[in-house]
Simulated assay, not measured.
Amino acid sequence: MLNSFVRYKAEKNRQLFIKNCTISDAPRLEEEVFPAECKAEMDFVYKNGNEPLKLDVYTPFGCYGPKECFILIHGGAFVYGSKVLDQNFGMHLAIKAGIPVVNVDYTLMPDSDISQIVNEIFHAMNYISSKYGIRTFHTVGDSAGGYLAYLVAIAARSRHIRHGLWVFEKLNGTVQSAGLVCPGIRNPRKGFPGIYFEKQINTKNEPLRLPDYVYDLNLIAERDTDLRLAIITGEEDFLREQDREFSKHFENVLFYDAENDGDLIMHHVFPVAHPEWPQSVKAISMIAENAVGRR
Rank of each mutant, 00 (worst) to 15 (best):
K9T: 11
K12M: 12
R14W: 05
R14G: 01
K19G: 05
V33F: 11
F34L: 14
C38L: 11
F44L: 15
K47D: 08
G49I: 08
P52D: 10
L55H: 06
V57W: 07
T59I: 14
G75F: 00
K83I: 09
K83N: 10
A97S: 15
V102R: 08
N103A: 13
D105R: 04
L108S: 07
D113H: 07
S115N: 07
I121N: 00
S130C: 03
I134V: 12
R135Y: 03
T139R: 02
S143M: 01
G145V: 00
A149F: 09
L151D: 04
V152A: 13
A156M: 10
R159N: 15
R159P: 08
H163C: 12
G164H: 11
F168K: 14
E169R: 08
E169A: 06
L171V: 05
L171W: 02
G173C: 07
P188Y: 02
P193K: 01
I195A: 01
Y196K: 04
Y196V: 03
I201L: 11
N205G: 13
V214R: 00
V214G: 03
D216K: 02
A221D: 11
R223E: 15
R223Y: 12
D224A: 05
T225A: 11
L227A: 06
A230L: 04
A230W: 03
T233D: 05
K248P: 04
F250T: 01
V253Q: 10
F255R: 05
F255N: 06
D257L: 07
L264N: 14
L264S: 12
I265T: 07
I265L: 11
H267M: 06
H268R: 05
P271R: 04
P275K: 10
M286I: 13
